[in-house]
Design a protein around this nucleic acid. Structure first.
Lengths: 340, 340
DNA sequence: AGTTGGAGTCGAAACGTTTCGACGCGCTTA
DNA sequence: TAAGCGCGTCGAAACGTTTCGACTCCAACT
């Protein structure tokens, strides 16, 4: 039973409203003497305002929800998510909001999904890379909860922040093409996610536009996981006439691919150029450091929070913002070997 | 204005209590017909229980707070914290609790620190590696908020989970000693953190016990950051008779040290053995992969959540639990070179 | 037949705030 | 001097729940 505003009121023989005014510099003024008495008493009694009660009456919690792409074991181990979360965390901190991390959407029906989000504990929500089957974001929208989809599929009516995947992919492809590569493979991500789809499409487009022949066997699915990248590279190397370069849809897969090359005695970059995507912190620790596409994920997280806040305040927020990636050239790509 | 229990009551001409009983299978029984009517109406109207209101009357929020060691920009980029957070996230998910991540302890007075934690939004809290100057955890304890200190300084009266730093350090030192190293340096962490202090002490103890001479110049402060490790290694290599091996108090610093060696053309491990601490995911991506001390951080996170939950339920929880680390031998350590 | 008791329901209190309407007081202004 | 106004204060309503006491039936006892 912590001290409440009532205790102070009783002790000082004033009304609760007066105490409230004094503490908040409230909507009404309080005489200096009373104010001082109240503040002293509050300190004395160790008074802490109860945020839950405050939330109930104001309808605001100064807390925003963060919903990971899927709620499964170890999802926080994803470097991409970590980067986004860090950006969100920074922004929330500087705007004096706390974060609720939702942990239990999995295995629950839609009903429960909604209850978790819309139970009044958050003023708004950031959905990180929701895939198109993620109904929660749709329902949140339908119920007019201020929310932002960060790097997810474009869903109509939902405010979305995305990265220009096409630019990023073209940057990587052009880099390899300019180096002289013609046989370029692609290790794709999870094709139920928008990013993966767009990166794959840009790859195909680039190959077609430049009249580069490519086979189905050059497009592999790596599920965004290192092991997927590893397996994909293994099967690429087993091909009779393997490609000389590969662009991966994220860094984790590129790291897996790198490991596969090392194991098979294939030198990177001289025998195989590898390009990643995302510029996660691990991408510069590999040997050789990965050439990769930098996405301003952390900045997007920051922007997402600001947008949610604006949405809450009823300010206008652009329906869709696209961030431009840039290419970070490091040592995992070089000119292809002469032979062939 | 979302639908409330009252709307249902009004619509059906029953009392709010009846609706509550029907929805919760509440403490009183409801006739089957009424129950069905209520449930139908709730679905119809899209009723979502308001958790804030529920919290207020029950005093429980099914949410637990997570407090990072310090609240500064980019704190979520720390691999150690990520690992711990992931463990906490997993555990919270399976016990149907959400997480509040506190983002604004920094720069606020003690008063605000407390308000943030004790404002009724959380049932308990996990403090990740609080250092001894972190007053928040003390105050939380004083106010009887169920809380666990995860891998932090031991503070009396606070339930603490720690890792046997001594065991870990000895494992690393003995490994190097057995390989034949006698000139072993230590790059220490932030000496305001318990872990760093203990690791440093164990290093000294080991050196003394084995009658190994060591100089002050072999003990460097790396602040737990890669750049600190880098700088430390640089100054080690500048020594007239540098050590043949170095144990770092975390992986990040070991990675920095590795980079310094690479830059200076010092081969790791043949000319310099490097040992890390924590087994973060980056530690196996370096070339060579780091020999490091594995701490079950993720498991500790899980355990921490369970303990907080037990504390909340009034179950007995051991005041102090120690987890044992193990050594992961990879390729950054080997026998020292013959010369000298 | 009268008593007990459980099932089903209602009304109201409680949780800790914020904020509105009302009121009294003293000061200015006509 | 009366009207008007702003300041400081109080009491009460409101937010959306849960749950307790009380009440009414009706069935099952003695």
């Amino acid at each position: 039973m912590p001290t409440s505003i009532k205790d102070i009121a009783k002790l000082l023989n004033v009304s609760v409203s007066t105490v409230s005014y004094a503490i908040n510099g409230g909507p009404r003024t309080v005489s200096p003497e009373v104010k001082e008495k109240v503040l002293d008493a509050a300190r004395e009694l160790g008074y802490r305002p109860n945020r839950v009660a405050k939330s109930m009456v104001t309808g605001r919690s100064r807390t925003i929800g963060v919903v990971p792409p899927e709620i499964v074991e170890d999802v926080l181990l994803s470097p991409y998510l970590q980067l986004a979360l860090n950006g969100i965390f920074n922004a929330a901190g500087s705007s004096h909001h706390d974060l609720i991390l939702f942990t239990r959407l999995a295995g629950s029906g839609h009903e429960e999904v909604l209850s978790t989000i819309l139970d009044g504990r958050v003023d708004g929500a950031v959905f990180i890379a929701p895939n198109s089957t993620n109904r929660a974001v749709l329902l949140a929208k339908e119920l007019r909860i201020p929310c932002i989809s960060l790097a997810g599929s474009e869903i109509d009516g939902v405010h979305t922040l995305s990265v220009a995947n096409e630019t990023g992919m073209r940057l990587a492809m052009k880099h390899l093409f300019d180096l002289g590569h013609r046989r370029i493979a692609h290790i794709a991500g999870r094709l139920d996610m928008q990013d993966a789809i767009e990166r794959l499409r840009s790859y195909s487009d680039f190959m077609t536009e430049n009249r580069l022949a490519y086979h189905d066997s050059w497009v592999l699915k790596g599920q965004f996981h290192p092991d997927g990248g590893y397996a994909a590279m293994k099967s690429l190397l087993a091909l009779p006439n393997p490609p000389t370069a590969v662009v991966c849809a994220n860094d984790d897969m590129a790291i897996g691919a790198l490991r596969a090359c090392q194991e098979m005695g294939v030198n990177v970059p001289s025998q195989m150029s590898i390009c990643g995507f995302d510029q996660t912190s691990a991408s510069e620790l590999t040997i050789p450091p990965l050439t990769t596409v930098f996405q301003p994920i952390a900045e997007m997280g920051r922007y997402a929070v600001q947008s949610v806040l604006d949405l809450i305040d009823g300010k206008p927020v652009p329906r869709h913002v696209t961030f431009e990636p840039t290419l970070v050239v490091r040592s995992s790509t070089t000119v292809p070997m002469k032979e062939s």
